[in-house]
Each structure stands twice: as C-alpha cells, then as structure tokens.
Simulated assay, not measured.
Amino acid sequence: MNYKQESVNFDVLTGQEHILDNEVLETAIRAEGSYFLNDTWDVEAGVQLVETGIRNFRGINLPAFRSLSKEVLRTTSLYVEGNAHLQTYTTIAAGIRANYFDKLNKYRIEPRLTILKKLGGPFSLEVLVETKSQTTVQVVDFQTDFLGVENRKWELVNGENIPLLTSRQASVGVNYQKKSLLVSLEGFIKGVDGVVTASQGFLNQFQFERTFGSYVSHGIELLVNPSFGDLDSWLTYSFLNSDYTFSDLVPQEFRNNFDISHALSVGLTYQLNNLELSSGVNYRSGVPFTEPQGIDKTNDEIVYDFPNAMTLDNYFRMDFSAKYRFDISDKWSGNCGIAVWNLTNRENIINTLSSITEDGELSQVNQKALGITPNVSVRISYKF
C-alpha cells in the first residue's frame, strides 16, 4: 500500500511558499492455514509481518526552513481462531491475536469473540466482543495552514507523545429478516486509549495542546430495509454519546468533537428498465463547539467557555440522482447520469473557527458544506 500527499501554499503578499509532503508505504506478508476437525469444528492460524514507513517533509522559503523525518515500524502478529457450528443454530468464532511492535518493544494480546444464533423464525442474535490496535495516527499541525483548509498528515506511533492507539468494543444486535424486509437493531460500547489531541482537530483552547487521553462511546444503530419489486428503500438511525478524558487538560472530561447525538438517513431507489432513479435525505444533530467569551488582552489570546458545551445547528441535505444504461453494440455499452447534491440548497454549518483580527477584534468564521451542486457523468465501456 502506498499513499502520498503533496501540498503547496503560496502567500502572494509575502512571497512565502510552504510545502508539505506526507508519504506512507506499507508492505505485508502473511501465511495462514486451516484445519477441519469435523463438520462442527475448524481452526485457522497464521503469521503476519507488516512494515510501515512514513516520510514527512516540510519546507518554507521565508524564513528558510526545512524538516525531513523518516520512521519505520515493524509489526509481527501470530493469530489463531476456532469456529464452532453447533446444532442449536449457533455459530461461535473465538480467536486471539498476539502482536509485537519492534520500535516500541511491546507485546499486545488481542482476544476476539463472535456469536451468531438463530432465535427462531426470522429472528437472529449477534454478539461481538473484540480488541484492536493501530500504529498510525492522522494529525493536524495547524488549522490555519493552507488557506485555512484543514491539512492532515500521517505519523507513526513512538510510545512517547504518540502512544499506541488501542480499542475495546462490544455490541449486541438483533436482526429480523423475512422475504423483502430486513430490520436490524444494535447496541454498542467502545473505548479508545492513546487518543492524541492533534488528531482530533480541536478549534478551541486545546488547539495547540499536545497530549493524549481516551474516549468512551456508546449508542444504538437501527436499519430498516424494505424492498417492493423495483423499489428499494432504507432507513438508518443512530444515537451516540461520546466523551473525552484527558488527564493533562482542564477540564479533564468533556464531549467528543464527533459526538453527533442523532443521525437519520432515508433513501429510495427505483429501477425502471434501464433507468435508475435515487433520492436520499440526511439529517443529523450538529457537532459540538466551544463558544468564545472574549479576548485576554494581556496574553493576546481568545478566552473560551467550557469545551464543546454548545452545539451547531442541525444538518439537513437532500440528494437526487438519475442514471440510464444503454447498449451501443455487442461489445460497447455505456451509461449517463445526473446527480444533484443538496437539492434544497440548504446552508449547513459544519464547523466554526474563532480568531483575532489585526485590529484586535474577535472574529468567528463558519465553515459551510456545499450548497446545491449538480454533477453530470458519461461512461463508455468496452467488453473484450
């Protein structure tokens, strides 16, 4: 896997050029095997070696500044999983994964358990418990770089200011599936440790803080997917509650930047011969933000209220698309389509940033989502 980002910001007034390059190269090799004990039991096991390298370059011409860093981390993993298909219409998958991170000189054991059980008729139960880890983190240096567009870069964990990101989560879901109707309801809880403040995109008093902590999220997710011949529809709803804990910040506990309490999505797709019509509505609560109270003239900095105590206005968007498929010959075919994003042209504020102007006044800039945006596409395909 290879990922590369190149960014250039040029200030016409000062002649300053700011270059930022971020490259990720990941190579993996894996060997695995399975053994079937009988019709009920089977076992899978394997070993995986992953090498992740990240290169970061920053260059500024005025004043002259250059910074180049290259980091490599190798992860060795051994894993084994046993699967049981019981006569009680129950499937159990239990596994364990042992990881060794050479750069951190650290071992980590990650157990996982999945249980699927038919409850009778169209009902089934799914239980999932697992732990995971991540060795890369996407961070934001400065929110105002690159014309104010948030610019993220990938960095490797180092066990110091960027700890290993670990998570533990559990969920219980009940499914109903019969003929053309699927209903799924799931409750979950998730805890993540090693969360770096620079990866969360803070726009308040913690924007320049560099520390790490954790967050805990819990909620429910609902899916309703009925189909009626050529008409397919779906409805999804989610409720989320998520809170940070950073022991080095004051206050230590407050709402997560991505704590969207309610999210609702409804969609319809209708197929009429070669014509496909689709429409969807997305509605969700606004994201949390911190209200500025004023300016501290002594330190020339903004004074903020309690972090993430306020919430932006709700988000609403309606989309529409139409696609038509056609045949040109036995070998050639094509499709053309039109799509309209935010059909109602609603103004949705998705973030807000406060700053101090050159006159020493408090300024607040709202980041808005796209207004009505039409798209037209044509694709021609040839089948060999």
Rank of each mutant, 00 (worst) to 15 (best):
L181F: 04
N175I: 07
T135Q: 10
S167Q: 10
T136P: 07
S199D: 04
R210F: 14
S180G: 03
G187S: 09
Q138S: 15
G159V: 04
V149I: 13
F142R: 13
V195H: 03
G173I: 02
Q200F: 07
G191T: 07
S171P: 01
T166P: 00
V174Q: 00
G213Y: 01
L156P: 03
V183Y: 02
S199P: 05
Q143R: 15
V174A: 05
V129T: 10
K179R: 09
V216Q: 09
W154I: 09
E130N: 15
K153S: 10
F188C: 02
T166H: 04
N175R: 11
G187L: 02
D145S: 11
V149Q: 14
R152S: 07
V137W: 01
V129Y: 12
L156G: 01
E150L: 14
T136A: 11
T131A: 11
S217H: 03
V137Q: 11
V196Q: 05
F146M: 12
W154E: 06
S199Y: 11
V195A: 03
G187R: 02
L185A: 12
Q134W: 06
V192C: 01
K190E: 02
N204V: 09
I189R: 10
F206S: 01
V183P: 00
S184K: 07
E155M: 15
L181Q: 01
E186M: 13
I162S: 06
Q134V: 07
T131Q: 10
W154P: 00
V149N: 14
V137N: 07
E130I: 05
T135K: 03
A198H: 06
L165C: 02
L165V: 07
K132I: 01
Q169T: 03
Q207D: 08
L203Q: 14
L147R: 15
